[in-house]
Design a protein around this nucleic acid. Structure first.
Length: 489
DNA sequence: TGAAATGTTGGGGCG
DNA sequence: ACGCCCCAACATTTC
């Protein structure tokens, strides 16, 4: 019970339920201010680093998510104060202005964000203000899991086994019933002034695909548990239809936490008595949460992960700079239907099915021999779930430089991947409609279709749909040759 | 959380 | 009946 007010500073935890910082503040008996600081447009400040600025699709999402959080807070007597500028200036400034006794946060784990938080904690401390950190984003914080020799894990399976051996995951915290706000808190800035929405409205397809905010996140989780959980293990690789949870952007912004998913899945296992393949499917879904944890583990212990190759196995590899090829990949005009479908789904909805992410990443890095960094940057700009840990860890995994990575010589054949996981062509027909009338047997390799079949389907190769920009067999040989040369040197 | 090349096996056609 | 070959099916190795 202190009479000095508290600041709850929201970052990657845009929710009121299972939010330890908010929970603690609401139970303190003190008045509080809930604040979000938008610092993307004023990065580093006084040598204090700032997290990587969000990409376009994520900015759109953030706008909607802040709106939703403000609504959720208002329903319990609160509101969200928005500030604009470097957090290293804004948070200490706010604390002084309201005479705060403490700042409560849920921790972030990207190196810049963590360094920023340490610097701000120091400044606050000089003013006699404590900054208290909690965990809202992860099942296990990165420093709590280590190998027998005390180091970080670099292979997923033992990492996940160790994580599961850590014991029970605490149940999610309830949302506060009621908040007592500081009465004379500053007004802050209006949401629109953050300029998060695009000037040209390209976000219609994204808006039609998603409901940002905690309520939308809970609906996604419930729908997934009801419809897709028990068949998840085999079905998750099929990109057509709702075979996955699609929770990634909600998790990325903390609209829902992994503890909630973890306990909901375990509840389903118990309540429905899942066993056999259904139980295996539930475990496979939990393993996907594990990969997210593993990514954060890697980012924390290897802070250069976003900047350079984790493993140096490909140092000296003859990467190509091919602006035309990169452009064809980004626009979904490579001539390989499963690749183009994925890239267009990404552009249109801000999201891509994970199986297809692996295929398009392999295609960029191996068929086109373009380094993973431009691919990662494109995903960062276009994905609503672009995550500082998962995005870089997954790109490095695909490229063969990451932890526990797919070896470089593991080259996806985009035709076989399409045929195996989109056999009826529902996914390709949805996102590459100019191929819709092609029979299944040619859909993933239109260049093999007889002229009469193409004509009937209304396809003019090179005009209505591009010819393949590289030949699979040749591209494969080229990549393997480059790899062999790298290894020899 | 690959694909392709290479190796092995065994059934069946056939002389 | 037997050996030979072909080749599908599966397994292993290699990239």
């Amino acid at each position: 019970m202190t009479d000095r007010p508290l600041i709850v500073w929201f970052r990657q935890d845009l929710r009121i339920a299972d939010n330890p910082a908010l929970h603690r503040a609401s139970r303190s008996g003190s008045r509080l201010v809930c604040v979000y600081v938008h610092e993307d447009d004023d990065p580093a400040h006084d040598d204090v680093p700032a997290p990587r600025p969000l990409g376009g699709a994520a900015r759109w999402w953030l706008h909607q998510s802040l709106l939703a959080l403000d609504g959720d807070l208002r329903a319990i007597g609160g509101r969200l104060l928005l500030l604009k500028g470097p957090a290293a200036r804004e948070i200490p400034g706010l604390a002084r202005r309201i005479g705060a006794g403490a700042v409560l946060v849920n921790r972030v784990y990207d190196p810049e964000g963590a360094a920023r938080d340490r610097a701000i904690a120091e400044r606050l401390k000089a003013d006699g203000i404590h900054m208290a950190g909690h965990n809202a984003l992860l099942l296990h914080e990165p420093w709590t899991i280590e190998t027998k020799t005390g180091g970080p894990y670099q292979v997923f399976t033992p990492f996940w086994r160790a994580a599961r051996d850590k014991g029970e995951i605490p149940p999610p915290l309830a949302a506060p019933d009621r908040l007592d706000l500081v009465e004379d808190a500053p007004e802050g800035v209006p949401l629109v002034s953050l300029n998060l929405l695009p000037r040209i409205d390209w976000a219609g397809g994204i808006a039609a695909s998603w409901t940002p905010g905690s309520a939308g996140a809970r609906d996604r989780l419930a729908g997934f548990l009801n419809r897709a959980l028990t068949g998840y293990k085999p079905d998750r690789d099929r990109p057509a239809g709702e075979t996955t949870s699609r929770l990634s952007p909600h998790l990325r912004f903390g609209e829902i936490g992994p503890r909630t998913g973890w306990h909901a899945v375990h509840h389903a296992i118990e309540a429905q008595g899942l066993e056999g393949p259904a139980r295996a499917s539930a475990d496979t879904f939990l393993t996907e949460l594990g990969w997210r944890e593993f990514s954060y583990h890697l980012l924390h212990h290897f802070p250069h992960l976003p900047a350079r190759d984790l493993k140096e196995t490909l140092t000296g590899f003859p990467w190509r700079e091919d602006a035309a090829a990169l452009d064809a990949w980004q626009r979904g005009r490579t001539g390989y239907p499963i690749v183009d479908a994925g890239m267009r789904q990404l552009w249109h909805t801000g999201w891509m099915h994970n199986r297809v992410r692996m295929v398009v990443a392999s295609f960029l890095v191996k068929h086109l021999m373009i380094w993973w960094k431009p691919g990662e940057a494109w995903f960062w700009d276009t994905l609503v779930d672009a995550d500082p840990a998962s995005n870089t860890a997954s790109w490095q995994w695909s490229a063969g430089t990451g932890a526990d990575a797919a070896p470089y010589f593991r080259i996806f054949n985009p035709v076989l991947q399409g045929e195996r996981f989109d056999g009826d062509g529902a996914y390709v027909r949805r996102w590459v409609p100019e191929l819709a009338k092609l029979p299944d047997r040619y859909l993933h390799k239109p260049w093999t279709a007889p002229a009469s079949v193409l004509a009937t389907a209304g396809i003019r190769p090179g005009q209505t749909y591009p010819a393949p920009i590289v030949d699979h067999d040749q591209a494969r040989e080229r990549a393997l040759a480059g790899y062999a040369r790298t290894r020899k040197e």
